[in-house]
Design a protein around this nucleic acid. Structure first.
Lengths: 145, 145
DNA sequence: TTAAATTATGTGTATATACACTTAATATTT
DNA sequence: AAATATTAAGTGTATATACACATAATTTAA
């Protein structure tokens, strides 16, 4: 059945598949570099800590909006960060809300991994060369689809 | 501590984070379109079935190389496809190897989701416009980092 | 003010991902 | 041929992801 092969051949150039594949690989690259800091931390965890470093304290829902990450996914991700002592949780007047903040140790870890993150980022930028800005713009477009 | 905010501000433009975010979102888009076929299938599962449609039968290791997907990840992904009856497994003369092939039902499913996949793919292509080819090239570069 | 609707968050379940380790089979070495 | 090394695949564990559903607190409507 050679017709089958041709029937689905266009499905090979799937943009979703390509993006997932790239995300897998770049996650590996970044995480490998981060390992060299001696901290047991990965790229996804860093991205959340970085957001926390840029704000005072915010609710899970607000954070999930900014990260464009499903709220319940974030809940589970935060649990891991909490276990490592990198974040701190607070409650406010509204008993439903839960506020999250970067902890002192979380801040220290960010400082420690910074140079290794830079290495990974530079490595990636080098690959993209002049296409960097356009590439980032296109990623943003897809994130907002 | 405003200095902290500036100290890590460059970490916000993390290419890894952007790629992961885009991958999450595009996966949602594709999966939503695929749902409309009536089949309970997602974009990742399609990508594996598509690869299988292009080959005769291959070992897990060979498949994981072609997909650039960790072998043990693929093992688990194949288990899901097997449960749905979309693939078929064979053993060869070498008792260690396990060969996987698209099943008749798997082939049917691919035919059924094809138009919905096309919708998602066109939607994405439209967003990228003239940047499509360059974008794909850059994704490929990152996949091969 | 009590009932109903809304809101913020968490949990159950399933899939995706990857590393460390295990197991079984084949190939190589002695 | 038996011991050793290599190879192919699976399992344990942990994290990431997302949907459906549950729960608790607050707000709105009656």
């Amino acid at each position: 059945m050679n017709s089958q092969k041709e029937k689905y051949s266009e499905l090979i150039d799937c943009l979703c598949t390509s993006l997932r594949r790239s995300a897998r690989n770049i996650s590996q690259i970044y995480s490998e570099h981060l390992q060299q800091s001696g901290e047991k931390i990965n790229a996804n965890q860093v991205s959340i800590l970085v957001l926390l470093s840029q704000i005072e304290k915010e609710t899970i829902s607000e954070l999930s909006n900014k990260l464009k990450m499903e709220r319940t996914t974030l809940t589970r991700n935060l649990k891991v960060l909490d276990k490592s002592g990198w974040i701190k949780n607070y409650s406010g007047t509204d008993g439903r809300m839960k506020f999250t903040k970067l902890s002192k140790r979380g801040n220290q870890v960010l400082g420690k991994i910074l140079p290794y993150w830079k290495q990974a980022q530079n490595k990636t930028k080098k690959i993209l060369g002049d296409d960097l800005k356009l590439f980032q713009d296109n990623l943003k477009k897809i994130s907002n689809l």
